[in-house]
Amino acid sequence: MRNRRHAELLARLVADARYEVLPTPSVEDTVLTHLPRERVITVTASPGKGLGATLDLAERLAGHGYLVVPHLAARMVHGRGELAEICERLTGKGIARVFVPGGDAEADGTYPDALSLLEDLADLGRPFSHVGIAGYPESHPTIHDDLTVQSMWDKRRYATHVVSNLTFDPGTIRVWVRRMRDRGITMPLLLGLPGPVERTKLLAMATKIGVGESTRFLVKHKGTLARLAAPGGFTGERFLEQCAPALAMPDANVAGLHVFTFNQIEATETWRNDLLHQLTR
């Protein structure tokens, strides 16, 4: 990378990258084997596994000494009483960080969206010191772009930072960060990107978690498809280099990276260490 200032910025972000994992039966042992205790781990929530799997894994990882961020998907919480129990359960284990998306499930209780749950968290005394909300650089499958920006504005009083969903287009990041900051959403941003993962899994998961536009982008950019198909899968070096000018804007306020591991944890940590070495040599 020729621009030293950009390299220093990316080195800082890569050094403190946090990892998102899926609550599968084997992931706890994989995390313990391959990740140092200072790595921040976020644990997803899905309708198929239920919120209990998320909370159980978060508690176990916290017990091992990790800083853990469970996802509290609003539509999976059955009302304020259950929310209060979740807060007591997590804070009792020393967990002070959460991520609050709306979630993909149909609403089971009183929370049709993330904002309604965030409002109740505030009424419950704001039990968590760090509260993340979702940002969508690309079109969300069910929410118009303008509404996603407005949603961040509505939630800004209850959150401490924004976590961006996946995109493969650096130009999209540039436009989206500008729109967000022009709207007055000034919270720190954690930039989402995929770690190294096999092409077929990446494309399948990307479509499921709300980045269907990325599939169309990939079809138009054969070089990116070729990189995804190459041995070792997708890596984010070039993506981050191309994002660097946008991330370095004075008001960008990019505080870190949120790496979607798809549970390819060993490969992701190896990639992160190699990239950090490249950026700091």
Rank of each mutant, 00 (worst) to 15 (best):
L83M: 04
Y158P: 05
L124N: 08
D123K: 13
M152Y: 09
D146A: 14
G109W: 04
A159I: 01
A84S: 13
V149H: 05
A105Y: 12
L117T: 02
T110Y: 04
P127A: 06
V98L: 06
F128P: 00
R156C: 09
G79H: 14
V162I: 15
N165Y: 12
W153H: 15
E106F: 14
H78S: 10
K155W: 12
H130S: 12
S116V: 05
R97P: 02
T91D: 10
S129D: 15
V131C: 07
Y158I: 01
A114C: 13
R75M: 03
V162A: 02
G81L: 12
T110K: 11
N165A: 14
L166M: 11
G92K: 02
R156M: 14
P137Q: 10
T148W: 09
A105N: 07
R97C: 07
E82F: 09
L118I: 03
G109H: 07
P170Q: 12
M152W: 07
G103I: 02
A114T: 00
R157T: 14
T167D: 01
P141F: 08
G92F: 05
T110G: 14
G79M: 06
V77A: 11
E138Y: 08
R89N: 11
A122T: 13
D113W: 07
D154L: 10
L118N: 01
G103V: 06
D108R: 12
P137N: 06
G94I: 02
S129N: 12
G81V: 05
P127E: 13
L124D: 04
G79D: 05
D146K: 13
F99L: 11
D146P: 11
A96K: 12
P137I: 06
A122K: 15
Y136K: 10
L83C: 06
D120Y: 04
M76Q: 12
A114S: 15
G125D: 04
S116F: 01
P101E: 10
P170N: 03
T160N: 04
R75P: 00
T160L: 13
L115V: 05
I86F: 05
F99I: 01
G92P: 02
T148M: 10
N165C: 08
D145K: 13
L83S: 01
P170S: 04
Y158K: 03
E82T: 02
M152S: 04
A114Y: 06
A96N: 15
R157Y: 07
S164R: 01
L124F: 10
A122H: 13
T167H: 00
G94N: 02
R80L: 09
N165S: 07
R126T: 08
I95A: 03
S139Q: 15
F99T: 01
R80I: 13
Q150Y: 11
M152P: 00
L147G: 08
G125M: 11
G132C: 02
L124Y: 08
E119T: 13
S139M: 14
P127C: 08
